[in-house]
Each structure stands twice: as structure tokens, then as C-alpha cells.
């Protein structure tokens, strides 16, 4: 199993990773090698087997709709790379 450069570019865009050319070349090589090893799972007979996403018999966990103490806006904004008042400041999303 090997993957081509176009796939690497596409996946990097999906993953929001601005990789350099050197990183892209290395990723192509390493992911191909890893996928080669991983392809062993194709040999497992899973024709009658359900998937396990999670090992617990999970159900929705409901809680009472009651307010309880939480962090203040000031505490939550303390780690913000940039802020404006009580908002996180980001680059423009739409063209100005």
C-alpha cells in the first residue's frame, strides 16, 4: 500500500496542517510504510463480526438542568492568544 503526493496534500488540507515540502515527502514515505504494516488486518475474518467503537455499553448520560459553579470568563480568557474585551480575537473569517 502506498499513497501518492496528491493524497498527502489532500489529507494535510483536511487535517489543517501546513506541512513543508520536506515534511510532505517524508509523510508520503512514512505513511506508505506504516500502511503496508497495517494492511495485515485485511487478513482477519470479520464477515460476521460487529464493530466495537467503545467497550462500555454506553448510553446517554443525562444531568439535571441546574446551574452550578464554573470558570469565570476572565479565567477562560486567561490563556487566549489574543482577545478583545470578553471575546477571543481571530483573523477575519470572511473577506472584508
Amino acid at each position: 500500500m502506498s499513497i501518492d503526493r496528491k493524497t498527502v496534500d489532500h489529507v494535510a488540507l483536511l487535517a489543517r496542517l501546513a506541512l513543508t515540502d520536506v515534511e510532505r515527502a517524508r509523510t508520503q514515505e512514512q505513511l506508505s510504510a506504516i500502511l503496508e504494516h497495517i494492511s495485515v488486518i485485511a487478513e482477519a475474518d470479520t464477515s460476521q463480526v460487529p464493530a466495537t467503537a467503545h467497550i462500555l455499553p454506553l448510553e446517554n448520560v443525562m444531568t439535571a438542568d441546574k446551574s452550578r459553579p464554573s470558570c469565570t470568563p476572565e479565567e477562560l480568557l486567561a490563556n487566549a492568544p489574543a482577545r478583545e474585551g470578553e471575546y477571543f480575537r481571530v483573523r477575519a473569517v470572511l473577506e472584508e
Binding site: R16, L17, A18, N79, P81, A82, R91
Partner: peptide, 25 residues
Amino acid sequence: DGVKYGFSARDGVQDLVQTTATTRA
């Protein structure tokens, strides 16, 4: 994504998508 906490690349990037991708890279 460089918005709420953690490292954030702000120099030489134009828009939000580029900020995110550069921050993560």
C-alpha cells in the same frame, strides 16, 4: 486551532484557515 488557548501563529498569515494550519504545523 490557535484561538482559545495554546500556541498561535499570527505573523505572516492572512486568514483563519491559514492561521489554523500554520499554528498546527
